[in-house]
Design a protein around this nucleic acid. Structure first.
Lengths: 330, 330
DNA sequence: TTGAAAGCGCTAACAT
DNA sequence: ATGTTAGCGCTTTCAA
């Protein structure tokens, strides 16, 4: 491992001067050349660990998400990564699996690794986020609120639920069910709220209780929920899924039962980037996943830069780009 | 930031003793208690940066993959993560976007961050992998070979291509095209080789040259390739996609053209975890993505542990679990 | 502008 | 078994 001392020796200057060259501090042009030549020849690259110990910080940001296998979060992660990369930071990705213990574990790591900041989709209401904020490390919440007074970037979940449900009603479906995530997750909960509200308003009566299914937010959860809905004495003719993966499971079950959309109405809050259905077969309420990521990253960069204005909450809106085929056209 | 000295002072012992307690070295039970009490009270947690500078290594492994938005690589990543986590290591995920510069950049980081090792799907033939191996850091290649003599975990690509193609022929399709990735990527190239071999063997003649389409390995690549195939004077009646994302694009185009599988035969090398098609509509040759990850992780752990046997190459086989509906049954 | 030297927090000789 | 101390590679006062 070639160190700053060897470069200094070869260049005939002091280690401090080498350090200054690599940190853009004023050094005479002549010595800059000397140092550059020496370090090129030795293939020197600064030891980040040592620099971090000295500086008490690093150009690394942790991103904590529940599940790297969920395309929503991978798109979000790309957004975060692109924005931070451009600013010279690296991103460390961590799966929390929605497990508070794992979240705490990774927050500890971010702390003891002297990372510059953290962006997270929080599991626990407060977690050990305080450990970071107390040390002055900025933390930005994404997709879900915390109890703490920190920057956050959210989606307008009730509006998204309303948009999805309205599209199905507009298309002529009348018995609209809803597959929601675990009750503890506020994001899908807000979307289910939107569903209930619209159905009640536009049909004049609240939906059947059995039309609201809570499931785990993954594909198998959507499958189970859809199976339960189809087994009802009076099954629905359409369904709103409050997230992407559950919709995949629901559509799989429908296809297996011969009810390929749009014979059965399906609307999703979220994107199905790998869906293989014909266009307009289902309604997608697109979530600005990538944008969520870039927004959070930029807020974090501002905080890292020393910005100490009061905590902000940015709410991004979802957007419908495909709508269901009207019942009359089927 | 509470240090080992403060804990030592409070416990009435030396810093070295505190260090020993935290590293499981022999210390009298009495002092262990003292130290534990003191560190709990002060909420001490060891500074990993300092430890890393001192030890010249860390419990962190870098995983370099081309694209975190590809479900094949996220599944692989989960495999790596689960295996390494269980051994007390953390994983840093990096997107190379199949860009040699990014690969080099991340290898540099792994180097200067004193990471314990690297697992990568290599872009360049040798990259700057040597920088790591020269320092004794183990590197494991995954999914693609390097020119170097290092451990690697591969898939039997020709066999996978053969399996996919055979399934379509068995189902009664006769004009079978192939969508392959960029020529430079050996994995999809091997699969295309398998396709050509089987078609030639079983039909008695090599496939039409126009039936082999090279595309970028993503969804839009699959779309363009499928469109080109359908525009042929004599279009095929089935297609083999050499990876998952291109298959999604191909199926999208087919659905839009009213040729929903299995009316048009589709076989994929790779999994479509988010496919919404009825079962048996397409043939999937499942790739053991997660297993690839755990295997690579365990090999890396052995090397980190000091194992210095000659470099090994493990080849994992793909597995068909769904087969196309026979033409006669449609 | 440049150099000398201290110190970031930890661990491993070495000494006791 | 435990304490003392040097040093990992870097940055940054402080002096010159």
């Amino acid at each position: 491992m070639v160190t700053i001392y060897e470069v200094a020796a070869k260049a005939g200057v002091s280690p401090a001067t080498v350090s200054r060259v690599f940190n853009g501090m004023p050094v005479s042009a002549e010595k800059v050349d000397l140092v550059r030549a020496a370090s090129d020849e030795l293939r020197y690259s600064p030891n980040k660990t040592a620099r971090r110990l000295r500086n008490q910080t690093s150009e690394i940001v942790a991103l904590l998400i529940p599940d790297i296998e969920n395309p929503f979060f991978t798109a979000l992660a790309r957004g975060v990564e692109d924005a931070l990369q451009a600013a010279g930071y690296s991103v460390v990705l961590c799966n929390t699996d929605d497990d508070p213990d794992k979240e705490t574990h990774y927050l500890d790591i971010a702390n003891s690794e002297n990372m510059a900041g953290v962006i997270l989709a929080p599991v626990a209401e407060d977690g050990d986020i305080r450990r970071l904020t107390d040390r002055g490390r900025p933390v930005v919440a994404i997709d879900r609120q915390t109890g703490l007074n920190i920057d956050s970037v959210m989606v307008d979940n009730p509006a998204a639920g309303i948009a999805a449900t309205s599209a199905l009603l507009d298309a002529g479906y009348t018995k609209i069910a809803c597959i929601a995530g675990p009750v503890v997750l506020e994001d899908t909960e807000g979307r289910a709220l939107g569903w209930r509200k619209v159905v009640t308003q536009r049909t004049g009566a609240p939906p059947l209780e059995a039309y609201l299914q809570h499931a785990n937010y993954r594909v198998d959860g959507g499958r189970l929920a859809m199976q339960a809905l189809l087994a009802l004495p009076e099954p629905p003719d359409a369904v709103v899924s409050t997230n992407n993966l559950m919709a995949v499971g629901a559509i799989q079950v429908l296809s297996e039962a011969g009810l390929v959309p749009p014979d059965f109405g399906v609307a999703v809050v979220g994107d199905l980037p790998f869906a293989t259905l014909p266009p307009r077969a289902i309604t997608q309420v697109h979530l600005p996943a990538r944008h969520l990521g870039t927004t959070a990253a930029n807020m974090l960069l501002e905080r890292i830069g020393g910005d100490d204005q009061p905590a902000r909450t940015v709410v991004l809106r979802a957007q419908i780009t495909k709508s269901s085929t009207p019942v009359s056209a089927r």
